[in-house]
Simulated assay, not measured.
Amino acid sequence: MVPGDSAILTHLRRGALEYCVLAMLRGGPTYGFEIARHLTRDGVLMGSEGTLYPLLSRLRKAGLVDTTWQESPSGPPRRYYALTDSGSRALEDFTRTWQPFRDAVDAALSEGAAP
């Protein structure tokens, strides 16, 4: 990573990470550690799992996810997170908006290189 990349990633993550979490829940309820493991595997979407639990709490308070406790075969009960109808709509809205936004950024970056 070159200097400045960390600040850039922080800003980009701030806008997109919650939708990445919502997208992970499309397939059904998932517990926090599994979400964290998936999002931290390359260090790009999330640097550490310490940012996940406050984000999940905000999503729950906003009504975008619900939680349930389920027994675990290998330890204490786990809190599972599931997408609500509002969460599904928010994810659909983001998905519809993301591609044109991404394309506009790509175009701006490409045009900036042209004379």
Rank of each mutant, 00 (worst) to 15 (best):
39 L>C: 04
70 Q>F: 09
17 L>I: 15
19 Y>I: 06
101 F>T: 14
60 R>Y: 10
40 T>D: 11
47 G>E: 11
72 S>W: 09
109 L>V: 15
46 M>A: 08
65 V>E: 02
38 H>K: 12
107 A>E: 15
79 R>E: 12
60 R>P: 00
31 Y>L: 02
4 G>S: 04
36 A>V: 13
85 D>L: 13
73 P>Y: 03
44 V>Q: 09
11 H>C: 01
62 A>S: 12
74 S>C: 02
107 A>W: 05
107 A>P: 04
5 D>W: 06
2 V>L: 15
68 T>L: 07
46 M>Q: 05
61 K>P: 00
97 T>P: 02
49 E>H: 11
14 R>D: 11
6 S>C: 07
109 L>C: 14
43 G>P: 06
105 V>M: 14
70 Q>Y: 11
46 M>Y: 07
33 F>C: 03
82 A>S: 15
87 G>M: 08
16 A>D: 13
94 F>E: 12
111 E>I: 05
72 S>R: 00
59 L>K: 00
75 G>V: 04
5 D>R: 05
73 P>W: 01
86 S>P: 03
26 R>A: 12
20 C>I: 04
14 R>M: 06
12 L>F: 13
101 F>G: 08
78 R>T: 05
38 H>S: 15
84 T>Y: 06
12 L>I: 14
56 L>S: 00
109 L>S: 02
68 T>S: 14
19 Y>R: 08
33 F>Y: 13
37 R>N: 05
79 R>Y: 05
72 S>Q: 02
75 G>D: 02
67 T>A: 06
84 T>N: 02
105 V>F: 10
48 S>A: 13
57 S>Y: 10
100 P>F: 01
100 P>H: 00
23 A>H: 15
82 A>W: 09
14 R>P: 02
19 Y>N: 09
30 T>G: 02
66 D>M: 09
28 G>F: 13
